[in-house]
């Protein structure tokens, strides 16, 4: 195993150069997949026989909900790595991932509500999935608020890492308990129609859209962390050389 690769990756300057080369490719690929997946879902798939056209929100809702959960897990693992090995770049990644994840979590909640109105007849049902996404949103807000409360960047990094790790341990417990709570209280057990068997002509655009949104997240994450690297390293010679060329 070649460990020097990891050490190089943890160096902000190396990561900045490397991500700069990656950025245009990720951006183009993300744009392509999102545009194809969403236009396909919006214009070219037949309507669902139960829900009519409102189900087209699925091409937006499912990627957002999936990303909200994935980003939190990724953020917590990154935080743990940064906490244990004291890697500055890992904390920059955590601080960049939290707002992206929170924005997708909010999108999943809002599109879920908009989807619920024509499908279930109400904007909100206390369904197990919507409820756990709502709790995930609170976890994101807590993480963002904790970071902003500290003056020192190092203290904030370590505090946020602890909170993220505790949140990661709790996430499956919350998920199971909410699902259990939902089965206990009958009356709110409305299942999303079409979740078990989905026609191929709907599944392929959905998968394209999910891939597109994941790539898009990688793209905006790279944009964010590059700006954050410049911000935190602005007293180093290489950043001054890079930005000073314009002045």
């Amino acid at each position: 195993m070649n460990w020097t690769f990891f050490h190089r990756m943890a160096s902000p300057k190396w990561f900045y150069d490397f991500s700069g080369r990656l950025l245009p490719w990720v951006g183009m690929l993300a744009l392509g997949c999102v545009v194809i997946g969403l236009t396909w879902g919006l214009l070219f798939t037949p309507p669902d026989y139960l829900q009519g056209n409102s189900y087209r929100i699925i091409f937006l809702h499912v990627p957002a909900a999936s990303l909200a959960l994935t980003i939190y897990s990724g953020l917590a693992v990154t935080a743990a790595i940064g906490f244990i090995w004291k890697i500055k770049l890992a904390d920059m990644a955590v601080s960049c991932l939290a707002p992206i994840g929170a924005s997708f979590c909010a999108l999943a909640l809002i599109t879920g509500a908009i989807w619920g109105k024509p499908t279930w007849g109400t904007w909100w049902v206390w369904d197990a999935r919507l409820t756990s996404v709502l709790i995930l949103q609170f976890l994101y807000f807590g993480l963002i608020a904790l970071r902003e409360a500290f003056d020192s960047r190092e203290t904030a990094a370590r505090a946020c890492a602890i909170l993220a790790m505790v949140g990661l341990v709790n996430l499956p417990i919350i998920k199971f308990s909410v699902e259990w709570w939902n089965t206990l209280h009958q009356g709110a057990t409305i299942r999303v129609a079409g979740e078990s068997s989905m026609a191929m002509e709907m599944l392929i655009p959905l998968l394209t859209s999910i891939a597109g949104f994941y790539l898009f997240t990688l793209f905006v994450f790279l944009l964010r962390i590059r700006a954050e690297i410049l911000n935190r390293e602005q007293n180093t010679a290489w950043v001054r050389g890079l930005l000073g060329a314009n002045f």
Partner: peptide
């Protein structure tokens, strides 16, 4: 986490209440 902060009260509730949910449900 919040003991060193001057206005820790409301932040503390924001951090801990979501984690209380499984206990509440059970």
């Amino acid at each position: 986490l919040t003991v060193g902060l001057r206005k820790g009260g409301i932040l503390l509730s924001l951090l801990t209440l979501p984690l209380y949910i499984p206990v509440l449900i059970l």
